[in-house]
Amino acid sequence: MAKWTTADIPDQTGRTAVITGANTGLGFEMAAALAAKGAHVVLAVRNLDKGKAAADRIISMAPNATVALQQLDLGSLAGIRAAAAEIKSAYPRIDLLINNAGVMYTSKQTTSDGFELQFGTNHLGHFALTGLLLDALLPVPDSRVVTVSSIGHRIRAGIHFDDLNLEHDYDRVAAYGQSKLSNILFTYELQRRLAAAGESTIAVAAHPGNSATELGRHLSAVAEVVAMRLLSQSAAMGALPTLRAATDPETAGGQYYGPRGLGGGRGYPALASSSKQSHDPELARRLWEVSEELTGVTYSID
């Protein structure tokens, strides 16, 4: 398809979609597009005031939209467990989980559980949330887990099993790369396990290319202008690969979508290729096991 857009999203009436980080940027665009197509969208956000503003904005754009708020702090395992319990109580059947929220290039910080902030939020938080919600996804035919990665999974990226929190040599670019590589390894391993269990639920990954969002707030002023403005596309365009992964009837488990332009930085969504590392099943299996140990979350399909 030459130019896949939100006009190509099939009718979403009757579907429930949970989107993390849905109050701003890419997540907001995803939520607005799905709500406009009839989905009941749950905005899983850390700040409820900002979430309420986002919900009001979506309804102003699509008066018939149905949206709900759910507080979620991906930097707290206790908070994730509480949020997952509330979501499953309200929505025992979930059609779509979009793991979108994230942080990028932060200074050396930790989550409330002591994990390096980018690895803890971007990967471990979503690993835990997905595992806790999986029982609500499995009974739904063709349900999907879509996890948002980044071009950054190729940049100074590796899984540092001897120092996952990068306590001894912190580098914010390497930390981001590790977290985004983890997102793709997680997706591919989740898909392998779902397929082995004979489930119809699929796991898919996507990346937004270079998109103008608040993720650049931890860059220097000059770098933020260059990377997030001069070289970027809009958040609405950046959301398209994830929306296609989430809704295209032709999407298959284990696929990876991104902008089709040069280097994957800009353009309409198409199938993309991820790094050689991301396709290493042994690396993915080891990361899965470590993630289970660190979060205390095990998956029902295992």
Results as ranks from 00 to 15, higher is better:
H40Y: 05
A205D: 10
G120F: 03
T247Y: 01
P10L: 08
S273C: 01
R93Y: 11
V103E: 04
L262K: 06
D162N: 14
D248Q: 02
A136N: 05
L240V: 10
H218G: 08
G296H: 11
Q255S: 15
R286Y: 05
V173G: 06
D56I: 04
G267L: 15
I87F: 08
K3T: 10
E199W: 02
L133A: 01
A78S: 14
G296L: 11
R15F: 05
I184H: 01
G131K: 11
H153E: 06
S143G: 04
A39Y: 07
Q277H: 09
G158E: 14
A55Y: 12
G264T: 08
L243T: 09
S107M: 07
V148L: 12
A174G: 09
D280P: 05
R172H: 03
N23M: 02
Y176N: 09
L219E: 09
R156M: 10
D8Y: 03
A82P: 14
N183V: 01
L294M: 15
A236I: 10
A175D: 13
A174W: 00
L185Q: 12
W4M: 04
D11W: 13
R266D: 11
T295P: 12
A2Q: 15
S220L: 05
I301A: 01
Q71K: 15
A284F: 05
A223S: 12
R217I: 11
S150T: 04
L97Y: 08
A221F: 14
L129I: 01
N64E: 09
R93S: 14
V222F: 15
E86R: 10
A78R: 12
S112K: 13
T13M: 08
T242H: 03
N99P: 01
A2K: 09
L271E: 08
L240W: 13
A175G: 12
K50W: 09
A195L: 07
H207Q: 12
Q233E: 12
M30V: 11
G296M: 13
S220M: 03
L134Y: 00
K88V: 15
L166R: 15
V41E: 08
T298Q: 14
L132D: 04
S89L: 14
P249M: 00
L26G: 02
K52L: 09
L181F: 13
S89Q: 15
S182M: 00
A44C: 14
H123Y: 10
A39N: 02
R172N: 04
P63F: 03
E292D: 01
I80C: 06
